[in-house]
Design a protein around this nucleic acid. Structure first.
Lengths: 347, 347
DNA sequence: CTGAAAGCGCTTACAG
DNA sequence: CTGAAAGCGCTTACAG
């Protein structure tokens, strides 16, 4: 029967070492021989001993913990962010603490307080909600000198944030379609009044005006104001509105892949061909976009790059040690994914 | 300028109370008046003070922390489990610590060690991988007297687990289709050899034999052995295999909603009607299943019930305080969702 | 309720 | 490297 080891003191006694040597071996500090480090590590392995994070966090300056919070796990994009962030942080020796802020009302403050009570070294807010709520969270953290970085906040931030450049992506999509000869665009679910639609609309307008074209004349906004579910069903309804148009666009740019797939489905059922009758571009690079037929051209969020930028920003803020440090906003370029759903316009 | 408060000692000094009173007020213990509790709480609010979880975890017996781990965030079902678990645990005064085990190789052991170092009071393994890996995790936890519960382990467990009764669900689906007059079934992607398929197949067989029917004669298994992606594209390919059959089934039961939607899409393009030509049942109750046309009949995992059962099981194990306690496996009944994709068979 | 003390398991600074 | 000590911020048991 093996004896069990529950503290570094017991481990030191077992190995005939001082607690000092054990502590420094565990933490990779200098002053102990490589041989001693090996002995300590193999004993930890053998007895399944892991030092108490609480004692360490209480006495030491570093806890190694990083609080990560996000609103909901409702999209594959969010879950991908989380997976990348976990990988990147644990490679840098940090331990992520994940929490959801919107499973219950008022949960956000509770989560931030938990992070504070855990003495996290930094907080990463993913998809932070707009307005006063997240401002309050940032205030709470600042009060405790805990730096925070924002990954894709829902309202525009002026510092310490990483944001996806949707405008640039849509400008590039539009340029590509112009190159293929398209001059009449259908904007499925993309409207200026809508926070999700605004940067997309602006990007399209920018690309058009670079060619001397006016978005008001070249593009039809096809949407249903007040519609809430931005999924396939919405896409089908927009397909229905599109088909009633006298002068049909030749290139369709959809708010996202689900809307694109819904519209494609509906129009195909009516006998339309993709990309012969319509070129179509989605957004999000969901698995769905590969599975449509033809496979959908779309825009990939480049989540890996955003997650990396956010983690590096947070680590830098932690290293600066200045709670009022302001790092410039990082803009991430989305990647255009070209597949089968676009073609040269018929002349 | 407000002074800041960083410890219960400072808080006690500020309020003219003893540290004893403050501690008991914060933890809701008896011996302090309601008035004192109120004073303490409002001062905590005012100064944004949250006691150190590390000091608390080090000295006190309880940390209130629960480790939750899961393999990946790859399905909406998993993310739903997490949201429910967070809500249920925080309502019971526990703090969940979430970690992913499959973002890097060997991450599982690292995650369990982190839980141990955090002195969690219990661990919930969600979608635990089959085989030796999770057995090892359980061994590590047991060594530290940390109870663990399994929510839908990928290999059958004999105790301390909550499992979805897929067999029962498919038996009920089959009964319903039999009631509608169907006697010839197409099993899309459901094969006996496959861990995901086995319980489904058994359930279908059970319902058939209850009516004196033999699954070998009444059902065609339509699948592509070795196919990896169980998504819409696979469904479309299975639709292709189905249409080549001499004697076509009238009722289709798909492995999941994506396979069902893919098959529906493919067959509709060929001019088949749902549910006139084929009745169709999916599984998972994804958002997608509402968005097909006709809307898909499907099976809902009843995640809320599974999450509740798992949380209650874990809480009971913690309260028992016996690291070798074995609670019986809880089976959760999935819910059948009837929509538009099934009909009485043509006579 | 107060007050004074012990102790949780570490890290850290210090003298050797 | 050793050894002895202090201290992180709490909870807890004890005497009043």
């Amino acid at each position: 029967m093996k004896k069990t080891i529950n503290s570094t003191a017991e481990l030191a006694r077992h190995l005939g070492l001082s607690r000092w040597a054990v502590s420094r071996a565990i933490n990779g500090h200098s002053g102990v021989s490589a041989e001693t480090v090996g002995l300590v590590q193999s004993a930890m392995q053998e007895f399944g001993f892991t030092p108490s994070a609480h004692a360490r966090g209480l006495r030491g300056r570093r806890t190694g913990a990083i609080g990560i919070c996000f609103r909901q796990l409702n999209t594959p994009i969010t879950t991908e962010k989380i997976a990348h962030v976990q990988r990147l942080l644990s490679r840098r020796g940090y331990r992520p603490l994940f929490e959801l802020t919107e499973v219950d009302a008022g949960m956000g403050v509770e989560v931030i307080n938990h992070f504070i009570s855990m003495r996290v070294e930094g907080v990463l807010l993913i998809d932070a909600p707009p307005g006063a709520e997240s401002t309050n969270w940032l205030k709470m953290l600042k009060r405790h000198n805990i730096p925070a970085a924002l990954l894709e906040p829902r309202s525009p931030a002026t510092a310490n944030a990483v944001q996806l450049d949707r405008e640039d992506a849509l400008a590039r999509v539009t340029e590509r379609l112009l190159t293929l000869g398209h001059t009449h665009f259908g904007l499925l679910g993309i409207s200026r009044e809508f926070p999700l639609g605004k940067p997309r609309y602006d990007g399209i307008a920018r690309a058009l005006s670079a060619r001397g074209l006016d978005i008001e004349r070249c593009a039809d906004i096809i949407d249903i104001p007040g519609h809430r579910h931005l999924g396939m069903r919405y896409g089908r309804e927009l397909g229905g509105k599109l088909i009633d148009k006298k002068k049909r666009p030749t290139a369709l740019i959809a708010l996202n892949d689900e809307v694109a797939a819904g519209a494609m489905w509906y129009l195909q059922k009516l006998g339309c061909n993709f990309p012969a009758d319509f070129s179509l571009f989605g957004f999000d690079n969901l698995v769905l976009s590969e599975q449509t037929s033809p496979a959908l051209c779309t825009v990939d969020h480049n989540v890996e790059a955003s997650a990396l930028a956010a983690v590096e920003m947070l680590v830098k803020l932690i290293e600066l040690g200045d709670p009022s440090a302001k790092l410039p906003v990082v803009r991430i370029e989305p990647r255009l994914i070209f597949r089968e759903s676009i073609a040269r316009v018929h002349s």
